[in-house]
Computed example of a mutant assay.
Amino acid sequence: MSDSPNLLKESIGRYGIWSHGLRDEDPSLRAEIGDAAAELEQLGFGAAWLGGSSAVRHALPLLESTSALVVGTSIQSIWQYEAAESAAAFAEAESAHPGRFVLGLGVSHAKLHDQYRRPYSALVSYLDALDEAGVPANRRVLAALGPKTLDLAGTRAAGAIPYLVTPEHTARAREILGENALLAPEFKVVLETDPGKARAVARDVLALYLALPNYTNTWLGLGFTEDDFEDGGSDRLIDTFFAWGDEDRIRARINAFHEAGADHVALQVIDAGTREGLPREAWRKVAALLEA
């Protein structure tokens, strides 16, 4: 990326919503997803990040129902879609909704893809193919955790969208990326004040990730130990990766990422009471506490 203004950074604001539910392909939910996206825009969120193994097609209901909301994949696995296929889908979205779709890419995990080989080299080759197909670097972001991929995110993309990281990681990432690149970490919020209930919900969510070395190796580099990964995660681990408690505590935890150098925080909001796919009331509560 050049030193020219990062338009993506300017367009998505300080907060977005990260959600699995927003990428649901059930036709009966298409209208509800569109309505939820429109409300997120009204609530002041600048972006919606489609969680899990998402693709360009999952963004269309949200783009069609909004006028300014930026929609991004978080992430689209490079092993699941060929670069030419991604480029063609990007071109369609760009034609219909100029400047509002962001292609979030990542190498995913070896346990999830049989073809997983030399992930960094594969990612570089994928970006080369996107360049040749005309997908602009300033409209793609990378799920970067380690230094090499963070550097790639700053030079071959608009920036980075790290998942399951800390403010300490954010500070390191900012140093690697430089000031111009977008840095938009994901962060989980549990709307629960009771420590036992909040941590139980968090452990249910974290269980999948404790089995994925890309994350646990990163956490070891952030000062955690193997003991922190036992029994669903130590309280220290849970309390680091999830904000829970009263509004002031949650707000302070989110602000810590901005203070460490994040431009935007993608909030994965978990309603301890419902755990629904589209926790719209929980999104409203978070929007309100961010305005306070």
Rank of each mutant, 00 (worst) to 15 (best):
M1I: 08
S2L: 10
S4P: 01
K9L: 03
S11R: 13
S11G: 02
R14K: 15
G16P: 05
W18M: 01
G21Q: 14
G21T: 07
E32N: 12
G34P: 11
G34W: 13
D35N: 09
D35E: 14
L40A: 01
G46S: 09
W49V: 02
L50F: 02
S54I: 11
L62C: 15
L62D: 11
L63N: 14
E64D: 14
S65Q: 11
L69G: 02
V71G: 06
G72A: 14
G72E: 06
W79F: 01
Q80K: 09
Y81F: 14
A83G: 02
A87M: 07
A89I: 03
F90S: 07
F90W: 15
A91T: 13
E94M: 10
P98I: 02
R100P: 08
G104L: 04
G104E: 04
G104P: 08
G106V: 00
V107T: 09
H109I: 00
H113R: 15
H113F: 14
Y116E: 02
Y120H: 08
S125E: 13
Y126P: 00
E132Q: 15
G134D: 08
A137L: 07
A137P: 05
N138D: 12
R139L: 08
R140F: 12
L142M: 00
L145T: 06
T149I: 11
D151S: 09
G154H: 00
R156K: 13
A160D: 03
A160V: 07
I161H: 15
T166C: 04
H169F: 15
T170F: 00
R172E: 10
G178L: 04
G178F: 03
E179C: 01
N180F: 07
L183P: 06
A184P: 14
E186L: 01
K188M: 12
V189M: 12
T193H: 00
P195H: 09
A200E: 13
A202N: 11
A202S: 14
R203E: 03
Y209S: 07
L212H: 04
P213A: 01
N214A: 00
Y215T: 02
W219F: 07
L222A: 13
G223L: 12
T225A: 09
D228L: 08
G232A: 03
G233E: 05
W244V: 04
G245E: 08
G245R: 14
D248I: 07
A252H: 08
H258I: 06
H258A: 06
A262R: 09
A262S: 10
Q268N: 13
Q268T: 03
V269T: 11
I270Q: 15
D271A: 02
A272Y: 13
W283G: 01
K285C: 04
A292K: 15
A292Q: 12
